[in-house]
Structure formats: C-alpha cells, structure tokens
C-alpha cells in the first residue's frame, strides 16, 4: 500500500489533526473488503484481456472488392462497345477485304474479356464451378447408385423411420 508522504502545511490546529486522524481510520476501514478481492480482480482481468480467438473469416482480397469489380465491368463493356464499333466501321469502309481482320479483332476482344473476367472474379467463378461440380456429382451418384445410395434417403428414411 502506498501511503501519501506529504503533509498539508496549512493544518496547524491540533483539533484538525485529530479529525484528520479519525478520517484516516475511517478511510482504512473502508478498505475492509471481502477476502480474496485481489484474486477476483486478477481473474476478471485475465478474462477480459485474454487473446481473442483466431478470426474464422478474413477480409476479402482487394481484387474481389466491389469497386474493382465495377471498374472491370466498365472496362469490359467499353471493350465490347469498341469492338462492335470497330467491326461495323471496318465493314462499312472496306467491305469484304477487312472481314477477317474484323473477326480477328472481335476474337481478341473476347479473349481479353475472358481474361479480365478471370482476373476480377476468379474467386466467385471458382466457387460457382465448385458448386456446379458438386451438384453434378450428386446427380451422378443418384443416377448410378439409385435412391438408396444418395444422401437424400438418409434424410428422409433415417434410422428408426422405417
């Protein structure tokens, strides 16, 4: 316990000193807490400042953010528009001769579109493909193994139901 080690120089009256003595005694009596106070405070501290559990969900990567997706969509639409415009213009200015060139340009644009799509939405795309594969596998299992080998029977005709 750290006790104050200074004094009030204005107190020169012994009767005031006596009152201060009584106040000190009263103050000390207020510290008479139930046993184990310190232990309970430490337990509360331990509980409060314990390290948080590892986060199960992490923040999405930057390339999956909404802003980047929107920007990619704009680029995609712009590319399509430009492709169509170039193709139409080429067809009108040089009919026949530039058809192959225009088609090649369209192919390039489409390839570019797929590349951008993969870049910007690879995660969601992968998730969709994975879900699709899972669904196809389930259908295969049901088709080849019949109802009893499928998970559906477990749900509907579980233990004790039949």
């Amino acid at each position: 316990m750290t006790a104050p080690n200074d004094r009030n120089p204005e107190i020169t009256d012994r009767s005031l000193e006596a009152i201060a003595h009584r106040l000190d005694a009263l103050g000390l009596s207020e510290q008479d807490a139930p046993d184990g106070l310190e232990d309970r405070v430490l337990a509360a501290l331990t509980e409060a400042v314990a390290p948080a559990p590892i986060a199960l969900r992490t923040e999405a990567p930057w390339w999956r953010s909404g802003a980047v997706r929107m920007a990619a969509s704009v680029v995609l639409l712009g590319s399509v528009g430009a492709t169509v415009y170039v193709a139409q213009r080429g067809a009108s200015t040089n009919p026949g001769g530039s058809t192959l060139t225009a088609v090649a340009a369209v192919e390039d644009r489409i390839e570019g579109m797929f590349a951008i799509s993969e870049l910007t939405d690879a995660g969601a795309f992968d998730d969709s493909i994975a879900s699709l594969d899972l669904w196809v596998d389930t259908l295969d299992a049901e088709a080849t193994g019949g109802w009893q080998s499928s998970g559906l029977t477990d749900d509907w005709f579980g233990e004790g139901a039949l």
């Binding site: 107190i11 201060a20 000390l28």
Partner: peptide, 14 residues
C-alpha cells in the same frame, strides 16, 4: 501508514 495518511502535520516542508 496511518501517520503518513494524516495530511495534517504542521511541518510545511518536505
């Protein structure tokens, strides 16, 4: 500690 806690001593200096 009780003496320290007085806060009422007449000695002005520390």
């Amino acid at each position: 500690p009780a003496d320290d806690g007085l806060g009422s001593g007449s000695s002005p200096g520390v």
